[in-house]
Amino acid sequence: MVLLLIGCLVVPLLGLLRSSFLPGSHLLEGSGFTLDQYVRFFSDSYYTSVLVETFIDGFIVSLICLVIGFPTGYSLARLPPSARRWRTLIVIMPLTLSLVVVVFGWLIILGRNGFVNSLLVTLGIIPSPRIFLFTRPAVMIVLVQQFLPFMILSVMSVITQIDPVLEQAAANLRANRFTTFRRIIIPLAVPGILVGFNLVFVLSISAFITPRLIGGNRVVMLGSLIYERIMSELNWPSGAAMAFVLFVSGLAFTAALNAMAGSRIITGRGRYAL
């Protein structure tokens, strides 16, 4: 296992890091060591705007996942096992199902002759089909659906560890559900929330299949930019540099959340509970 992971994880990463310091726009073109690729990336306003937009998208996606995933994860944790069964299956399904299949499902939902359009036209809400695809909100909705299970499961695993007696005690002390929620549940669930948020954010900023298929050419995220750069333009040094910007941003975000939590929650048990 050590050999496998070092050979197929550490070595490729180091190789990529090396390529990102090459000059030129082809792998075999240059040799030597230069920061050109990084300088070009950060000095071009197009790249920096893609970078910033990717982060904003990732943040919004994580936030939406948190807002709708928390109540779901909470209820899942408090349900009796029998009622939990099919709900868990629905939550797990998108995780195990291939990403392309899920994205294809969204093409059916959001397409011009798709589910949403035909529903809205039949109900008389809009007179003729609209274009939902190739917009940023569409990409974000699809990302939310893809990564929501991570949030739900993270929240669920931490809520199961909170004794329901605490909530009953709060209710006995005449706290309403909102107060109980704010003062008891949220503070205790912080580790799970952070783990979920972290996962969704890191996964969202590195997405490339979804922006490409749902967003087309109009919605560019960092992941799809890297894919283009490497697979279409074969510009390895530039693609490798972008990949490292992405990788390091993800690590930095994790580290920042870790620091915020003031403990080893995220890298510690949280990761393993994934």
């Binding site: 296992m1 992971l5 990463l13 190789g15």
Partner: peptide, 27 residues
């Protein structure tokens, strides 16, 4: 270290791992 290594693939974005492996195996 072994334990950390076992779970480390989770923190590497798939795009990064993908192109890293492509470069390695192309080489």
């Amino acid at each position: 270290f072994l334990q950390g290594l076992a779970f480390s693939p989770l923190i590497v974005p798939a795009v990064v791992l993908g192109i890293g492996l492509l470069q390695l195996f192309a080489g």
